[in-house]
């Protein structure tokens, strides 16, 4: 039983890569958000859980409670936006603010109330789930993080923990204590030698690759992407050359929200997701991001795959110690990093 049967090896590897792909997406968005805003985005996992559960609720033909949270967050963000920018508001800025924070959630609400009962199909429901969950992230940035954008990393981290706890509690109210599964995008399974690959697994790996490619193009070629990179390199410098850093922060959060919600929609058919599943999934993404020092995308990607594969194999050989192995593996990495890295200032 302990000799590695090649079939079992391949199945475990496949399982590990699919899980690793999700961790990679989360690690990516954690690095992105941290680089731009210095926020360690603990609630990233909640976007995954919200995305999955919203998609599953829509699939059951019901209106998810998260859409009302979106509206409430939109109104709060609007109120805060007016207060924060009360001295500089002109007509176009006012219209933009109203459009972003009132019109968008209102449109999503109407769309949801109209489409939810009539089971509009998997593609529409997946897109709707994205529309409901992704905009929450920039609203949360406006409400919780933008007012203290210059605070220390520790203060921002504490705020992130607060947002995480609030979102888990609300998740219980919206989705109930029991988990749900969504409908698969593709019911097909492909046989590859001894391997059976479910179509959904291909979707996950494909979407991960696509998102990475899109992000690389966005950062390399577009002005906004370059502005984000500039903010990440040096906030003050970016500001001095006229890059609005608050806007960069919202954009980073919006991307993270999109990626999180999409990950949720992608995994919902493969596993049962609970209102509090997000934290553990997010934590594994975080482990991967930490290995890259919260700044390196390639290191985070490799680490995410390693976490996924390590998890899969340890669940075969020593299932009782799976989490111990996965989280224990981070200790030597951190040790090596802190020994090898040049001493830096704790805070900028």
């Amino acid at each position: 039983m302990n000799s590695v049967d090649p079939t079992i090896f391949l199945i475990l590897l496949q399982d590990g890569i699919v899980n690793g792909a999700i961790y990679a997406l989360l690690a990516l968005s954690l690095v992105l958000v941290f680089a731009v805003t210095r926020v360690v985005l603990i609630p990233q996992g909640e976007f995954v859980a919200y995305g999955a559960l919203t998609y599953a609720t829509l699939g059951a033909g019901r209106v998810p409670g998260s859409v009302f949270l979106l509206c409430a967050l939109g109104i709060a963000a609007c109120g805060y936006g007016f207060w924060a920018e009360r001295r500089t508001l002109d007509l176009s800025a006012t219209l933009r603010l109203l459009g972003e924070t009132i019109l968008l959630p209102a449109a999503v609400l109407v769309l949801t109330l109209w489409l939810a009962p009539q089971r509009a199909g998997i593609a529409v429901e997946a897109f709707l789930a994205l529309l409901i969950v992704a905009p929450m992230a920039p609203y949360l940035y406006r409400i919780a993080f933008q007012p203290m954008a210059e605070a220390s990393v520790l203060v921002l981290l504490i705020a992130a923990v607060g947002v995480h706890l609030a979102m888990v509690g609300l998740g219980l109210v919206f989705f109930g204590p029991e988990g749900s599964r969504g409908d698969a995008f593709s019911g097909a399974t492909y046989t590859l030698g001894a391997l059976t690959v479910p179509g959904q697994a291909l979707w996950i790996v494909g979407a991960t690759l696509l998102i990475m490619a899109a992000l690389a193009l966005f950062f390399g070629l577009t002005l906004r992407g370059k502005a984000l990179r500039a903010t990440a390199v040096n906030r003050l410098g970016a500001r001095l050359v006229g890059i609005p850093t608050a806007q960069s922060g919202r954009l980073a959060f919006a991307l993270a929200g999109c990626i999180g919600a999409l990950s949720g929609v992608l995994i919902a058919p493969l596993t049962t997701v609970y209102y509090d599943s997000g934290f553990l999934i997010g934590l594994k993404g975080f482990v991967a991001a930490i290995v890259g020092g919260l700044v390196s995308y390639p290191a985070a990607l490799v680490a995410a795959l390693a976490v996924g594969i390590g998890e899969s194999f340890s669940s075969f050989y020593a299932s009782a110690f799976k989490e111990v192995i996965v989280f224990g593996a981070i200790v030597p990495v951190l040790l090596a990093r802190s020994l090898l890295a040049a001493p830096e200032a704790e805070e900028e």
Partner: peptide, 9 residues
Amino acid sequence: ARADTSVTG
């Protein structure tokens, strides 16, 4: 674990 996403292994 209760929140595990995979028990393939």
